[in-house]
């Protein structure tokens, strides 16, 4: 079982070595408030930056991002007993933050802008020939390297962020909720007050646009090097 995450160990500083023999749930009962407190403070140092940057990319307002990160850590302290240790701390904290972000969007409850869909109206321009098959010159090219490999390259994540930032705000929200937060389609429709068919069209177009952007800016340039 992996208790470590990016050089951070919540259990550092626990003097009683015997608790390592127990499962995490048992350990938590033994842990004192001060231990949880010091672990929580370490989370802020180790994962605060990552959570803040993710929140900022999603909500685009620094003060809102800070509040969401704070709420995440507070919720983590409250729910620490539920942390089984099966995933890394960062994954667990990101999971809490994702819920906080979805709650934030739920409270906003905005109307979708039609212009967002118009933005993609020419998404297929030149990609397909008139009878609906791919124009082979402009069809998808092979992507290398494999996902496992690119995940260790900071430039890939920067390219993905740049590609996401080029998307209209509401379309990007739809995509990130579905693909990053794993929110079910029906819930996204309810949160953003859009119809099911509208959501399908938005997701299709945003995936096509993002695929294109990654191909042009990563796989045909940086990814090859």
């Amino acid at each position: 079982m992996n208790f470590r995450a990016r050089g951070c160990n919540v259990y550092e500083g626990i003097s009683d070595v015997s608790i390592w023999k127990h499962k995490p749930a048992d350990e938590l009962r033994i842990m004192t408030k001060s231990t949880i407190q010091s672990a929580a403070e370490r989370w802020v140092d180790d994962h605060g930056e990552c959570l803040y940057r993710f929140a900022l990319i999603r909500v685009r307002k620094p003060e809102v991002a800070e509040d969401l990160v704070q709420e995440t850590f507070l919720a983590a302290v409250r729910g620490y007993e539920k942390f089984s240790g099966r995933s890394s701390e960062r994954t667990w904290l990101c999971g809490i933050l994702k819920h906080k972000i979805v709650d934030y969007f739920r409270k906003l409850r905005r109307e979708p802008s039609f212009t967002d869909l118009e933005f993609f109206s020419d998404e297929c321009l030149g990609k397909f020939v008139s009878i609906g098959f791919w124009n082979h010159e402009k069809g998808p090219k092979e992507w290398k390297p494999e996902p496992d490999e690119v995940m260790h390259r900071a430039e890939f994540w920067q390219t993905m962020r740049d590609c996401l930032s080029k998307l209209p705000q509401k379309v990007r929200d739809v995509f990130t909720m579905r693909e990053m937060d794993d929110v079910p389609s029906k819930e996204i429709c309810a949160i953003l007050s859009i119809s099911d068919s509208n959501l399908r069209v938005m997701l299709h177009r945003v995936r096509m646009a993002l695929r294109e952007c990654l191909e042009m800016n990563w796989f045909e340039t940086i990814g090859k090097s």
Partner: peptide, 30 residues
């Protein structure tokens, strides 16, 4: 990759998480 994005957000962005904000959050946690 999108699913993994949140955990790599620190590599994707260079936005500064200010130290006074960190301290404020730590105080709240205490």
């Amino acid at each position: 990759t999108a699913r993994q994005f949140p955990e790599h957000a620190d590599e994707a962005s260079s936005a500064i998480f200010h130290s006074d904000t960190k301290e404020r959050i730590k105080r709240k946690l205490v």
